[in-house]
């Protein structure tokens, strides 16, 4: 709910300028390296309103091709989490509502479905801050992810082993209460729990939050393997632009509830403005913060 205040206070002028041709183009699957693949998820021009008054997303469009890793970047309060929750239909519990636009998952309109129906169809969210069930053991946590499945105990058991093979650490801690495990283990547990639903698309919200850089790297490495080996598509919301752009194939940058820039990950990495505002680099190398007067309004983020 902390998004409420920010949305209301956001300046009327978009802070990030629109940059040339790259932006004028509509996001299209052809830009992604995995050409000729189907579109897993298409979000078209959605608006989200909290509490009937606070406009948080002001027309966000994005596309996630099947088999890809797409990242959603932006500062605190830019609307990343809201976008993910709009997709997974978890907004309702926070008194949020998609008032305009459409969301399609494998060609089907999904924004009226309940979250569990969406999970059954293969779209699951790993929420920000892990949100493991503290009083359940790690293994019980993983098993809750299989709630919507109807393909029998053996298949679920096999997937449990699959999750343990990606996260050996979880196997060691399978009997301990999730509430007592470390932050990294909890993040693994949350991702593993989502995998137990046999998803086609995982919406991953800030996996790097509160983790040591080495662990962040480890988590993204596993996401990458899951993407390659298990053919799971990922939409990752991140503040850690550097890591996210290394693992993702395509990226969108959100600011104040709008997509201000999008492109293939390499293009974004090379973009001067992304370098300056999101990666902390510039053409002349690392800059002193004192010199960037022309971007006063961005100071907050630097």
């Amino acid at each position: 709910m902390n998004l409420l205040g920010r949305g209301a206070l956001a300046p009327a002028v978009p802070v990030f300028r629109v940059f040339g041709a790259m932006n004028a183009r509509a996001p299209s699957a052809s830009l992604a390296p995995d050409v000729a693949s189907r579109t897993a998820l298409a979000v078209h021009n959605i608006e989200v309103v909290y509490d009937h008054v606070v406009l948080v997303l002001k027309g966000v469009s994005l596309e996630v091709p099947e088999g890809s890793i797409v990242t959603l970047l932006g500062a605190n309060g830019a609307g990343k989490t809201t976008t993910l929750k709009a997709i997974s239909n978890l907004l309702h519990a926070e008194r949020g509502e998609v008032t305009k636009g459409s969301i399609t998952f494998y060609g089907e309109e999904v924004h009226r479905l309940s979250p569990n129906e969406l999970v059954r169809r293969g779209c699951i969210q790993v929420m920000e801050g892990r949100r493991c069930f503290a009083h359940l053991t790690v293994e019980e946590n993983l098993l809750t992810g299989a709630f919507t499945r109807k393909d029998g105990r053996a298949a679920i058991q096999a997937d449990l082993e699959m999750v343990y093979s990606y996260f050996p650490r979880l196997k060691e801690r399978r009997r301990s209460l999730a509430g007592y495990t470390s932050g990294g283990e909890q993040q693994m547990c949350a991702i593993g729990r989502a995998l137990m639903a046999r998803p086609r698309l995982v919406l991953l919200d800030e996996p790097s939050m509160g983790l040591a850089p080495q662990l962040v790297e480890e988590i993204f490495e596993i996401v990458d393997q899951l993407n390659r080996n298990e053919k799971v598509t990922f939409l990752v919301a991140e503040q850690n632009t550097n890591v996210a752009l290394r693992y993702a194939r395509y990226g969108y940058i959100l600011e104040n509830g709008r997509v201000v820039l999008d492109g293939p990950a390499e293009a974004l990495r090379d973009n001067e403005d992304v370098k300056e505002f999101y990666l902390g680099l510039s053409a002349t190398g690392r800059k002193s913060f004192r010199d960037i007067k022309s971007y006063k309004r961005r100071k907050r983020w630097l």
Binding site: S88, A93, S114, L118, V119, R131, G145, T148
Partner: peptide
């Protein structure tokens, strides 16, 4: 909310 997110109705 987390329960909802993993598909528990």
């Amino acid at each position: 909310q987390a329960a909802q997110s993993v598909g528990i109705p």
